[in-house]
Simulated scan of single mutants.
Amino acid sequence: MKHKLFTIPPRWTLPHLYTHFQGAVDLEMWTIPYYLTVMYSIKDPTSEAYRLIQSAVYQEMLHAQLVANVANAYGYSPTLAAPPYQGKAVPHLDFDLDTPNPTTEFSPYSAELGPLDRTRINTLCLVEYPEWRTERNPDPSETLEDYGSIGEFYVALRAGMTQLRGEVRGNRRQLDQFGPFYNQCGQLYVSDDGEAGFRQAMTLLDIIVDQGEGQTEPVDTVPAEFQNTADGFQNSWPHFQKFDYIRRLANWPECYGGTADPAPATPGHAAQQMLIADFSAFLATLNRMFSGEPLLPAFGAQMAKLGGDVLTCWQRNAIPRFS
């Protein structure tokens, strides 16, 4: 793949780049509980809708690892905290900045956790919206809130990485949890210094964007080398195509319902508290891994346990909560 390089005024500094790496991890991690909540609300795990969302969740976990690897190669270890799910706020994105404004088509939408419904599927489509047409230059945003799409965010991040390409150092706190799922992809970490390492880092961002994180130009399929070779579903479809397909289904699968705040001492409240505790432990494991500890054996078990916790919340008539 030919990398896209960007020429913008020399405004980027390492601290500014680090802020954007943290923002990218925040954004990727925000999607995981949101997508899991929608996915496990679907009662039939063999349905197309369930499997399409599941395949995107798997890739979001990969994306979080890839961003962390790139950030660490530049000398920054990102930290994770439980994301907020309030109102219509998706971290670091303001959809109204896009032209045309995609919210005119994908409404209603909400950042509040909930089951598969029109509101949630519209939100999934907005987060992965593929056509960025804003005419503003991708200058670094001082507040990280001035990007109209995830695609624009990654364009800006690439620009900063390009300006600071000489800062890359290989084998600095790198992880490779998902290599066995991408046998055609080559290595999923940065091993070289300087220019060669910069090219490796850009390839990791290519994977993120081409799998569906708000591509900045129309793409019919995910490149073959970036497709899941183990447990994916409709591997050639980027995320937006998967979510828009669900949105257009004539018949949706049956879903659980629930309340956001079940009364204390009820099964639903207990299920929420278990999910909150297990998600906190999972984030602690990721923070240790992203700061340079070897892959911890708890990672896989904790990830599987989270799925069970989310499903239990729905089965006990509670909307899942992560904090």
Rank of each mutant, 00 (worst) to 15 (best):
T7A: 05
W12Y: 09
F21D: 05
F21K: 04
I32L: 00
T37Y: 14
V38G: 04
M39A: 13
Y40W: 12
S41R: 06
T46P: 02
S47K: 11
H63R: 05
N69H: 10
A71P: 09
A71L: 06
T79F: 09
L80C: 08
A81D: 08
A82H: 05
P83W: 05
N101C: 13
N101A: 02
T103R: 15
E105Q: 15
A111T: 09
L113V: 13
L116V: 02
R120T: 12
I121H: 06
L124V: 01
C125I: 09
Y129W: 10
P130D: 10
P138Q: 00
T143L: 14
E145C: 02
L157W: 13
G170E: 03
N171W: 09
N183H: 15
G186F: 04
Y189T: 13
D192M: 13
Q200C: 11
T203N: 12
L205V: 14
D206Y: 02
D210A: 12
G214E: 06
P218H: 04
E225L: 11
T229E: 03
T229Y: 07
F233N: 07
L249I: 06
W252K: 10
D261R: 01
D261T: 05
A265N: 14
A271Y: 05
Q273P: 11
L275W: 01
A284P: 03
L286K: 06
R288V: 02
L296I: 11
F299R: 10
F299L: 13
A301V: 14
Q302T: 13
K305Q: 15
G307F: 08
G308A: 03
G308P: 07
T312G: 00
C313Q: 13
W314E: 02
W314P: 00
A318K: 10
R321C: 01
F322D: 01
